[in-house]
Write a protein that binds this DNA or RNA. Sequence first.
DNA 1: CCCCATCTCTGTACGGTGTACAGAGAGTTT
DNA 2: AAACTCTCTGTACACCGTACAGAGATGGGG
Lengths: 217, 217
Amino acid sequence: MGKPGPKRTLSGDVIVTAALALLDERGAEAVSVRGIAARVGVAPNAIYTYFPDKAAVLRAIVDRLIGEQGLEVLAGDRPWRERIVAVALGLRENLLRHPGAAVLMMSAPMDGPRALELGERLLDVLAEAGLPPDDAARASYALIVHVLGSIALEAAEVDPTKPAPPEAERVAARRLAFAAVPAEVFPRSAAAADVMAAYVSEEQFRWSLGRLLGGLA
Amino acid sequence: MGKPGPKRTLSGDVIVTAALALLDERGAEAVSVRGIAARVGVAPNAIYTYFPDKAAVLRAIVDRLIGEQGLEVLAGDRPWRERIVAVALGLRENLLRHPGAAVLMMSAPMDGPRALELGERLLDVLAEAGLPPDDAARASYALIVHVLGSIALEAAEVDPTKPAPPEAERVAARRLAFAAVPAEVFPRSAAAADVMAAYVSEEQFRWSLGRLLGGLA
DNA sequence: CCCCATCTCTGTACGGTGTACAGAGAGTTT
DNA sequence: AAACTCTCTGTACACCGTACAGAGATGGGG
């Protein structure tokens, strides 16, 4: 019944956990097979017992993060828009906690089972909102694109090797940078510098998501 | 007057061109300092005369691609929405021609001069559309997020080491994959498989962009 | 019970990576 | 002509992903 051979000392899960920790602590470049192996106390190639290659580990990280997002809110009884906003905000918070992971989400097709589940629940909500099935599907993709795009662009600005600074700090840094744009050649950008600095804020996230939802309804 | 030392045999531009060619022909992993150097016929570290490190080369690729997008359409006299759709479609076409580059665009803050120019012109159009300045700025970011997000997610599905197959083929491949989703556990996804297969199509791109524009106006 | 098939993990190795450092040679300035 | 400065080359280091061979543990079948 049981398989022969020694007991496994690891599991895919502890490897993913180690990889994620490495990603958070030291950035994307530090996520190496050797680094992961060292962290779990094993020879580098032992990793290949659990994953066919490094890319598979990265995919597993993505799937883990998608799965961490609870989808119960989507089934709640609040108005449908609020529910969607709630899970979008949850995703944003979760992913900004692992800034290096955002780009991973955009680098591979989202075809894992967790992604499928998220899509299905989104279709539920949109159907409930009264969208015909085809429009609901298109809308669901529009939402995913928008949410992931926002998060990725936002995460692209934070140094992934250290914990993300609070939002106010990130906005302030951008404001400083925008002070340098020459008003005579980019007058509108110069005038809007304050709101452009706040592109990487929850407020902007909510605003644009709200507009998209308005267009979808 | 002139600087001492031998004439430069290269320029940042020819390096970026070589890197882009490598990216198109052999995928992101093939874009190495050594590969670029070999392609332009120079020792690997000669590259460092023109760029401080590899990341700078990648950023320059991004800036080049943004700059390649002509912005004249934005100043035309067609209705403002049409103009925005036109440049979005142009960007999509351009970036899908370099599938490996899409993820680069999401990996670094878009702060090059070309990006600034694009933002400014977008603000022009949105002001003309009647948006108050602050909303125009927020809307401009929402558009960029959406367009880049769509493109990145779309590009994530194509093998960057070979020229992207035509859209019909990519959609067909997805349709095949969706045939495998179990209808009893994901009924809505199964029912919408056809439109989900077409997520990576110009039609979906136009649809969701249209909805967003509707919400912004 | 013993042996064998099987599985996990280790050691070693190969070809690749980014880039630091030192120095050769070309060209301009004095 | 000498001094200086800049570009490029050679060499080197530390690290990467991963292929390969084999040690040792484990369980099943005789």
